[in-house]
Computed example of a mutant assay.
Amino acid sequence: MVLLTTKLMQRTSLFVSFGGLVSTFITTFLPLWKTMNSDLNEMENWYEGLWHTCIFTEEVGLHCKAFESLLALPPVTLASRILMCLSIASGLLGVAAAFFGLEGVEIGQGREKVKRMLLIVGGILIWISGVTTLAPVSLIAYVMVVEFWDESLPDVMPRWEYGEAMFSAWFSGFLLVIGGSFIFVAVCMGDHEAKQQSKVFFQTHRQPPRTQNYLKTEIL
């Protein structure tokens, strides 16, 4: 008995992709991409995301403020916003397309070629969603490392460090890439099963070969 079937692989890939999409959506709006603690005032912790800048103090708690001007944003932050929004949009379309391509979904029943094409399109879109999630977080991480070790800045000046949202973005991006890859594996498994079924059908309906003792009969 084969435990890993095409149907199970399709649902596993969709579940992994949906989990990565939800994590990407939450991470996009978290103000925890960057964190900073000043040595001059250890009671204050600064946080920055793609949309807000926050400060945490024991007296007030967490207080956030949105960026005032879109044009005043750093190019890295603006590009990361665009890529994360593109990731959410492509991920939604990819998960929707893959869902309608699943075996057992009544929509498109009997149209195997259409359902196969939906799975392929869904896998490509989910792959794009994963790459556009990994790209901005990796770019921000690279810029932070360069600025952290910038010798032209004074040592007393605090530096931004990695926040929890960056690790969440890496995790969700890898989930999307893995989910899209699983969809392609499911498509290949479906093609293999269809080929095996057609081979069995051909063998069962093929006429047996004639032997030397074959006698032609005529109806008089």
Rank of each mutant, 00 (worst) to 15 (best):
G179P: 14
L119K: 06
R111V: 06
L134I: 10
G94K: 00
P74E: 11
L153A: 10
H192W: 12
V105R: 03
K113T: 11
S80I: 05
V121F: 05
C188R: 13
E147H: 07
V121P: 00
F56G: 09
D155I: 05
L86H: 02
V95K: 00
G94F: 00
M157A: 14
L70C: 05
L176N: 14
G180A: 05
E193R: 12
S172Q: 08
L92M: 08
I88E: 11
P136T: 09
A66M: 15
F182W: 03
A89C: 13
S152H: 06
A135P: 01
S152V: 03
P136E: 04
D155V: 07
K65I: 12
I183R: 01
Y162C: 04
S80A: 14
S168K: 05
E103A: 02
R81A: 09
I55K: 15
M144V: 11
V200Q: 10
M189N: 14
G122K: 01
G61E: 09
P136F: 07
R116S: 13
V187K: 10
G163E: 10
E106K: 14
M144T: 13
L86W: 01
K115P: 11
E161M: 09
I178D: 14
F67Y: 15
S138E: 09
K199S: 11
L78Q: 05
L153D: 09
T77W: 06
L83T: 03
V146M: 06
F182A: 01
L118H: 02
Q109F: 04
V137Y: 09
R81K: 13
E68V: 12
G179T: 09
V121R: 00
R116A: 13
Y142H: 10
G104H: 04
F182Y: 04
A89T: 14
I107Y: 04
L78H: 04
L78C: 02
P75C: 03
I126T: 06
I140F: 07
A169D: 04
I140Y: 04
P136M: 04
V143G: 02
E161Y: 14
A96M: 13
E147C: 01
H192Q: 15
L62I: 08
L176F: 08
I128S: 00
V177H: 07
G180M: 03
S69A: 14
D191C: 13
A135W: 01
E58K: 10
A97I: 00
P74N: 08
A169H: 07
W149D: 15
I88L: 13
P75M: 05
S87H: 05
K113H: 09
L139A: 08
C188W: 07
E106S: 15
Q109D: 10
I140R: 07
E58L: 12
I82A: 12
E112F: 04
D150H: 10
E106L: 12
M117Y: 08
V185R: 03
F171N: 05
K113W: 02
V60F: 09
Q197V: 14
W127E: 03
L134H: 02
W170D: 07
A79S: 11
A98H: 00
S87N: 08
K195W: 08
E161F: 12
A186P: 04
